Simulated assay, not measured.
Amino acid sequence: MTTARLTRWAALCAAAPLALALTGCGGGDDGAKPSAAPPAASSPTPSPSASADPDAAEKTAVLASYDAMAREQMKAYRKADAKGTDLEKYATTEALGQIRNDLATMKAAGTVVRGELGHETEVTALDMEAQTPTATLSDCVDLSGYETYDVKAKKAVPLPTEQPLRYVMTATAQRWDGRWMVTGIDPQGGEGATC
C-alpha cells in the first residue's frame, strides 16, 4: 500500500464529530411599546411538512454507526493494533479486513497515527426497500490536524506533497438485525475529488 493510500486510509478514522451551532435572529423592534389590544389567537402548530425526509431517522442511525466505527478505528491506528477496540460492533468482515491490512502495514513500518482528523459525512444514498437495507456515505476528510508518526525515529512523517489536505472518500453500510454496519471503505471513492 503506498504512503498516499495509507494516509487516505488513516484519514477514515475520523476524529471528533463537528459541532454545529444554529442561531436565530429576532426581527422585532426592541423599542416598541406593548399594545393594549389583546393578543391575537395563536395559530395551531403546523403539522410536519410532507417534504420532510421520511428516512431522516435511518440516516442519523447510519451516520452514528459510521462515526462510532471511525472512533474505534482511530483508537486502533493510534497504536497500530486493533486489540482493545470495538471495531467488530460497527464493521463487517470486509471492512475489518481493510483496516487490519492497514494496521499490519503501519506495524511493519513502525508508524502510528497522531493528531486529529476532521470529517464531514453525509448519507448520499439510502435503499430501505432492498432485502438488506443499504446506505452509501460521502466523507469529506480533513487532514490538516493529522500526523503519521515514526515510533522508532521519534518524528513525524510528512504527508506526500501530492496529498490534498481535504478530499472525498466513500463508504457503504448495511442494516443487519436492526443496526447499521459499515461494510466497505473506499479511500479513493471520491476519485481524487477535493472538498
Score class of each variant (00 low, 15 high):
residue 93 T to F: 01
residue 109 A to H: 03
residue 6 L to Q: 10
residue 164 P to Q: 10
residue 16 A to G: 08
residue 88 E to P: 01
residue 134 T to A: 11
residue 132 T to K: 14
residue 115 G to D: 12
residue 64 A to P: 04
residue 23 T to Q: 13
residue 157 V to Y: 07
residue 9 W to Q: 09
residue 78 R to I: 05
residue 134 T to G: 02
residue 19 A to M: 09
residue 136 T to F: 01
residue 189 G to I: 09
residue 144 S to E: 04
residue 83 K to Q: 15
residue 91 A to T: 00
residue 106 M to G: 01
residue 64 A to S: 12
residue 187 P to V: 15
residue 40 A to F: 05
residue 116 E to M: 07
residue 111 T to K: 03
residue 190 G to W: 01
residue 85 T to Y: 00
residue 44 P to N: 09
residue 159 L to N: 10
residue 22 L to Q: 07
residue 123 V to L: 04
residue 166 R to E: 11
residue 125 A to H: 15
residue 136 T to Q: 08
residue 152 K to D: 15
residue 102 D to P: 00
residue 151 V to C: 04
residue 119 H to W: 07
residue 131 Q to E: 12
residue 142 D to R: 05
residue 154 K to Y: 02
residue 47 S to I: 06
residue 13 C to S: 14
residue 112 V to R: 03
residue 191 E to V: 11
residue 150 D to N: 12
residue 175 R to S: 05
residue 18 L to M: 10
residue 69 M to D: 00
residue 144 S to R: 07
residue 84 G to S: 07
residue 110 G to W: 02
residue 1 M to N: 06
residue 122 E to Q: 13
residue 97 G to S: 02
residue 51 S to R: 13
residue 108 A to E: 13
residue 160 P to I: 14
residue 114 R to W: 01
residue 31 G to W: 14
residue 120 E to I: 11
residue 185 I to F: 01
residue 189 G to K: 05
residue 114 R to N: 10
residue 118 G to P: 15
residue 62 V to C: 08
residue 169 M to H: 06
residue 170 T to K: 07
residue 132 T to F: 05
residue 132 T to Y: 07
residue 91 A to H: 00
residue 79 K to A: 15
residue 120 E to M: 15
residue 163 Q to K: 08
residue 114 R to F: 01
residue 1 M to C: 06
residue 21 A to R: 08
residue 44 P to S: 06
residue 61 A to G: 10
residue 32 A to F: 11
residue 165 L to Q: 08
residue 150 D to G: 10
residue 112 V to L: 06
residue 24 G to T: 13
residue 101 N to S: 11
residue 157 V to N: 06
residue 111 T to W: 15
residue 23 T to N: 14
residue 168 V to E: 11
residue 121 T to E: 10
residue 52 A to S: 14
residue 29 D to P: 09
residue 68 A to D: 08
residue 16 A to F: 04
residue 137 L to R: 02
residue 18 L to K: 08
residue 100 R to D: 00
residue 51 S to C: 03
residue 58 E to L: 14
residue 41 A to I: 14
residue 43 S to L: 15
residue 148 T to D: 04
residue 101 N to W: 04
residue 81 D to A: 13
residue 123 V to N: 01
residue 17 P to W: 02
residue 193 A to N: 08
residue 17 P to F: 03
residue 108 A to G: 07
residue 147 E to K: 13
residue 93 T to A: 02
residue 156 A to K: 06
residue 54 P to F: 07
residue 42 S to V: 11
residue 115 G to Y: 07
residue 66 Y to H: 09
residue 98 Q to I: 01
residue 117 L to N: 05
residue 114 R to C: 02
residue 179 R to S: 11
residue 6 L to M: 13
residue 84 G to A: 09
residue 107 K to R: 15
residue 13 C to K: 03
residue 70 A to D: 01
residue 130 A to L: 12
residue 23 T to I: 09
residue 43 S to Q: 10
residue 102 D to E: 09
residue 17 P to E: 03
residue 138 S to P: 02
residue 160 P to L: 09
residue 155 K to M: 12
residue 132 T to Q: 14
residue 136 T to C: 00
residue 30 D to M: 11
residue 25 C to S: 15
residue 24 G to H: 05
residue 108 A to F: 05
residue 53 D to E: 08
residue 98 Q to F: 00
residue 59 K to Q: 14
residue 19 A to G: 13
residue 65 S to H: 02
residue 136 T to V: 03
residue 31 G to S: 12
residue 69 M to P: 01
residue 18 L to P: 15
residue 84 G to T: 10
